[in-house]
């Protein structure tokens, strides 16, 4: 069943809200889009509509956390990351137990164009000490990520898609925070994707006759799974990362840093948005143009051989 991870979030936050009365939700006039509206309808007393005022929402969430609640605050990822300095002090440095939910990640946002696309959110937020960054790739892993966020003490950033993604997992247990999921074992080449790009990598491997790559779902971007990177880095010739995000400071950067620090022999190829802005267009055409589609990923891998 195809489902946008934002839809899965809406259902999951309602679920955790029904068992945990400490869960509260804030939104900044996008509850219809982030799907926090599902929680708002069920628990109107624990939902705070902040209007188009993201900074105020972030600070208020920090205060609710200090008062003993577990706030989930929601907007598009770009508008949250845009309030970086507020997050830096009110959430990060304050060690506030705030869960930040950023939807409309990357080029997959489509026709609305660059101003609505989270393309550097992981870059800026990953510099914050103690912040866990999760990017699930299907319905059940999103539900698991929301459950994890609700029970974990500490700030979390959840990066979600506007577009629908196919189901990948049979059970929530496939998702273990901090431990990447191995979708397929292989040799010589490892394809490490996150979020929507996990599906492009799976489709790319179908196009790559005669190639037998590892396929990894790197759903936890911080803390990154260094032990898996280490073993792949020593056994593979090529590591290919793929993310619907800037290649500067996202998954590719984290994997590359880990590989270099451990002196791994594998070479790195980073697929993502390469130091440029996004634009309007159907998501599938943007993926093609910017090199993120399964076809373009397969071409890139093929060129390595």
């Amino acid at each position: 069943m195809n489902k946008a991870t934002r839809d899965s979030f809406g259902e999951a936050v309602k679920m955790v809200g029904s068992t945990d009365p400490k869960v509260v939700v804030l939104d900044a006039d996008l509850s219809v889009s982030t799907k926090s509206i599902l929680f708002a309808k069920e628990f109107p007393d624990r939902f705070f509509q902040m209007g188009i005022a993201e900074q105020n929402m972030i600070g208020t969430a920090a205060g609710l956390a200090f008062a003993g609640y577990t706030p989930f605050l929601c907007s598009f990822g770009c508008f949250l990351a845009g309030r970086y300095e507020t997050i830096r002090v009110s959430v990060g440095y304050s060690r506030a137990n705030v869960k930040m939910v950023g939807t409309h990640s990357g080029l997959g946002t489509g026709e609305d164009g660059y101003t609505q696309m989270g393309l550097e959110d992981v870059t800026v937020l990953s510099a914050l000490p103690g912040l866990t960054i999760l990017q699930p790739s299907d319905h059940l892993s999103t539900v698991a990520a929301v459950r994890f966020a609700a029970s974990h003490v500490g700030p979390v950033y959840l990066r979600l898609t506007r577009q629908k993604l196919p189901a990948l997992y049979q059970s929530e247990h496939s998702f273990q925070m901090g431990r990447a999921t191995i979708l397929k074992e292989g040799r010589d080449i490892a394809l490490i994707g996150t979020g929507s790009m996990v599906h492009e990598m799976l489709a790319a491997s179908q196009l790559l006759q005669g190639v037998n790559p590892w396929i990894i779902d790197m759903h936890t971007l911080k803390p990154i799974d260094r032990s898996l990177i280490k073993s792949l880095g020593n056994s593979c010739k090529w590591i290919v990362t793929a993310e619907d995000h800037s290649t500067i400071g996202g998954l590719g950067t984290a994997v590359g840093t880990a590989l270099a620090e451990m002196g791994a022999s594998a070479k790195l190829i980073r697929i993502g948005v390469e130091d440029r802005f996004g634009e309007s267009g159907p998501a599938s055409e943007l993926y093609e143009k910017y090199g993120l589609s399964a076809k373009r990923v397969a071409e890139r891998v093929r060129s390595l051989l």
């Binding site: 609305d112 164009g113 609505q116 634009e279 309007s280 055409e285 943007l286 143009k289």
Partner: peptide, 13 residues
């Protein structure tokens, strides 16, 4: 409007 490669972006550019 809102097509790929257009100057007529979904939001002004």
């Amino acid at each position: 409007l809102r097509r790929i490669n257009s100057r007529i972006q979904g939001h002004p550019d």
